[in-house]
């Protein structure tokens, strides 16, 4: 056989197109299942949350990162380690609020939306909302209550995709005692 497809590569990585297309099929299914975009957004966030709370353990078990000292460090780790590890890209951290409790992740390309064009009549749909859920779920497991949302999306004609993370509070009750 002369056909040598795009196999090889890191055994831990799945084909990017497979991931993107599967996600697309899922979103399409949700649009069918729910009446309006808000409900779809909510459902995507919820599914992301469920993924995030499990994904964090995979992340911690594999990446050798210690606990972050502050939110700035968290931002760096999310962008440079976590995104790199799971999506193979590194978003830019910017737009810090004066208090240092809010920042944005800027994505020039979003693998989830690679082949996507929003159908008309879905202007409120946050197509990649699952990312917000994943980040929220994962951060909650390391005792940070964070609000995550999309503020810009290339799908909606913006120049860049921007995810805004706002630190709400440290979940003191959940902090394991005797943290290293």
């Amino acid at each position: 056989m002369s056909r040598q497809g795009n196999r090889a590569g890191d055994p831990r990585k799945v084909n990017g197109e497979l991931f993107t297309l599967t996600y697309g099929a899922l979103v399409a299914q949700l649009i069918k299942d729910y009446e309006n975009d808000e409900q779809v957004n909510k459902q995507l966030d919820k599914m992301g949350y469920n993924m995030g709370v499990r994904l964090i353990e995979d992340y911690l078990a594999r990446a050798n990162t210690g606990r972050c000292n502050d939110f700035r460090e968290t931002a760096d780790v999310i962008a440079k380690v976590a995104f790199k590890m799971y999506l193979g890209l590194t978003p830019v951290v910017s737009n810090w609020s004066a208090a240092g409790d809010e920042f944005s992740l800027l994505l020039e390309s979003n693998p989830l939306t690679e082949f996507v064009e929003l159908p008309p009549g879905h202007s409120n749909l946050n197509y990649s909302n699952i990312m917000c859920g994943i980040l929220r779920g994962a951060l909650e497991m390391v005792q940070m209550d964070v609000d995550v949302r999309f503020v810009q999306d290339t799908l909606k004609g913006d120049n860049i995709t921007e995810i805004r993370l706002k630190f709400i509070k440290r979940l003191e009750d959940a902090v394991p005692v005797g943290e290293d």
């Binding site: 590569g9 890191d10 831990r12 990585k13 799945v14 084909n15 990017g16 497979l18 991931f19 993107t20 599967t22 996600y23 899922l26 299914q29 949700l30 459902q43 599914m47 469920n50 993924m51 499990r54 994904l55 995979d58 590890m85 799971y86 999506l87 193979g88 693998p111 699952i130």
Partner: peptide, 19 residues
């Protein structure tokens, strides 16, 4: 290229949602 863990969790959630 996405990490396989991400894909597996996505598939899990998809099955759970349809279910």
């Amino acid at each position: 290229m996405a990490d396989e863990a991400l894909f597996e969790f996505l598939h899990m959630e998809m099955v759970a949602h349809v279910h």
